[in-house]
Design a protein around this nucleic acid. Structure first.
Lengths: 206, 206
DNA sequence: GCCAAAACTGTACCAGCGGTACAGGCAAAT
DNA sequence: ATTTGCCTGTACCGCTGGTACAGTTTTGGC
């Protein structure tokens, strides 16, 4: 039997969601508890019932973000796996689906919390930083799996380090998010993903 | 006759340098004027003699960063231009030099201020945000020049949007910086630059 | 419908920060 | 000798992030 989401969990969710939006817009330090609780319609004491301190909020916020991101990847590339058996086709389809998903976000990608934390590292304790590092490593490993499966079937047209190629994926995404936000151009991220896809094609599909 | 750097300019520089390091580590909001002046060995009044308010500090900090970055690019690709006349070779050499420069940074790249601002946009006024957007556009245009010159001589092995390809450069760099900082791995940024170089080679040098 | 746990509210308090104001001091350039 | 640039010292203020803790309402399980 699944546990029904209690009222407390809903409030937590709301707090985390509001906080995430604020953190991506102003950074962690400038995100005041005051404004979060104001928007959530709760008191300061209520906030501290849910989170021991601001760092606890950061930790749960990140966990939430990582889980959501994992789901997007698994959903996207899972769907791609249904559409083809070939590892290369799977990955190419997955990248196209991902680009479409990113293009469909009405206001563009809201921002990457890992990048946000990275540029405010000194504000967080080791557990939070560990969480970001572990997540990045996990995503790198995830893409490495896909790419290694491709390389096993299709020898690359030029020698290439598969670890670096896997890492490139996340770099492109993070970089695309930043440029998109900075220029106010929501097409940049999906385009960069498709450009990475193009590189993969050029490397393996010849 | 060049103007000798006055004492005031030196102090300004010191303040900007200290502030930049702090901002890249903790974000703008968490960087207190108090700590900056403490490290600089100056009083608060001294600080406000140089900067009208915190936003003025941010503005000059960014200008300084953009100029420094411009110089790195111009120096690197300028040196490359001395070593070859061919647009493709120039760019490839430039990318290699850039990767080496990044690899030689003792503690890795300290971070990109544009990315930092991007994740704290609400803290800055329009002039600062305009400055970041303009800089990114300028860099995109700069790389577009290089790449268009290549494409004019060497038709790409696959149709590719040159604007997107130019933008990819900055995306890779920003993404590489973030992953490098997050994983504590200073080799990632130079490797990603070389991987981008490899893509350029694959596209045009066949 | 009772009861215990969950989910809060209310109040009080503090240090520190950004920012202002203003009265100087000191050294170098002209 | 005087101005100009570059600061120091002192005093002050409003705001807010954050802490602490006692008390109150709501909810869900039985």
């Amino acid at each position: 039997m699944f546990r029904k989401a209690t009222k407390g969990q809903e409030t937590r969710e709301r707090l985390l969601s509001i906080a995430e939006t604020a953190v991506l817009a102003k950074g962690f330090a400038a995100t005041s508890i005051e404004e979060v609780i104001a928007e959530a319609g709760i008191t300061k004491s209520g906030f501290f019932y849910h989170f021991a301190d601001k760092n606890a909020l950061a930790h749960e916020m990140l966990q939430r973000y990582v889980v959501a991101n994992d789901q997007v990847f698994e959903q996207t590339f899972g769907r791609a796996a249904e559409l083809s058996d070939d590892p290369l086709q799977r990955f190419l389809i997955g990248l196209k689906l991902l680009a479409e998903t990113m293009a469909d976000l009405p206001n563009g990608h809201p921002g990457c919390l890992i990048a946000s934390v990275c540029y405010q590292e000194r504000l967080f304790d080791r557990t939070v930083l560990q969480l970001t590092a572990d997540s990045v490593r996990k995503w790198n490993a995830y893409f490495h799996e896909h790419i290694a499966a491709i390389a096993a079937v299709y020898p690359p047209s030029e020698p290439v380090d598969l670890d670096q190629l896997s890492a490139m994926m996340s770099c492109i995404v993070d970089g695309g998010i930043i440029m998109g936000k900075t220029l106010g151009d929501t097409t940049i991220l999906p385009q960069q993903i498709l450009l990475f896809r193009s590189y993969i094609k050029l490397l393996f599909a010849r």
